[in-house]
């Protein structure tokens, strides 16, 4: 585990209202995640891993407890501040890629930089560098519909990485990929983690992903069952 703590979670509880009362998705989570970690939140469906990832990503807020991400308390952020945090410091990778279908690969990757209001030439260079890095230069003008699943997920990784975020949150990133593509994507992520010192946090129950993790946090019924450093 690295020294610099990027994420600090204390006594996190998350409840969702249900027709019969409320459902507790996370209950008493305490965690610290440092810079350049390659960490996975692992557990079966319904264990609360996606909820935890959403709260870290400021897409949701805690019911109780304190979650600090890059020095900012998630509970205290208003919607604009949360959007600013996501825009400038966090990258997301989704299970179903969620590329904008009418835009080209270049434009999809460019989108986060547009939100940062970077100038045209700067944007272009950053996008091309990232596409080059992920071996997608020849696909720059293609639309998502013209790409394979593996290529789409590489574009999603490029979109998450193009602004050089401090933290990348990946929710089941290999769920829609075959084994070969899954390994390719994971190797790419490991490379990015090593090269840019970007922190990667996965929510997964896929063994292929787990085999690449350097730290594995196991969740069961909203509680941390085990938090272990792996041999990877």
């Amino acid at each position: 585990m690295e020294n610099t703590t990027l994420i600090s979670i204390e006594g996190l509880r998350k409840d969702f209202p249900t027709s019969g009362g409320r459902f507790t998705a996370l209950n008493g989570i305490d965690l610290k995640i440092g810079k350049a970690e390659f960490t996975g939140i692992v557990g079966p469906s319904g264990s609360g891993k996606t909820t935890l990832l959403n709260i870290i990503g400021s897409l949701d807020s805690p019911s109780e407890g304190r979650v600090m991400v890059l020095g900012q308390s998630i509970s205290d952020l208003n919607v604009k501040q949360a959007a600013l945090l996501r825009r400038s410091k966090l990258g997301f990778i989704f299970q179903s890629y969620n590329l904008l279908p009418v835009y080209t690969v270049f434009e999809n990757v460019e989108f986060p930089l547009l939100l940062l209001k970077l100038d045209d030439s700067h944007r272009r260079k950053m996008v091309m560098d990232t596409l080059d890095w992920l071996g997608l230069t020849d696909k720059a003008k293609s639309k998502p519909a013209q790409l394979s699943g593996g290529e789409c997920q590489r574009v999603a990784v490029a979109r998450a990485m193009v602004k050089r975020p401090e933290i990348v949150l990946a929710d089941e990133p290999t769920a829609n990929l075959d084994a070969a593509n899954s390994h390719n994507i994971l190797k790419t992520m490991v490379r990015l983690n090593n090269e840019f010192q970007t922190t990667f946090i996965f929510a997964t129950h896929d063994d292929k992903v787990i085999s690449y993790l350097k730290r594995k946090i196991s969740l069961i019924d909203g509680k941390v069952l085990k938090d272990e450093i792996t041999n990877n």
């Binding site: 897409l59 919607v79 959007a83 996501r86 825009r87 400038s88 997301f92 969620n98 904008l100 939100l115």
Partner: peptide, 15 residues
């Protein structure tokens, strides 16, 4: 809504 969700995640404001 899918597009809006993605755009929100990438840091665009609701407004």
């Amino acid at each position: 809504y899918t597009e809006f969700g993605t755009r929100l995640a990438l840091g665009e404001n609701y407004s």
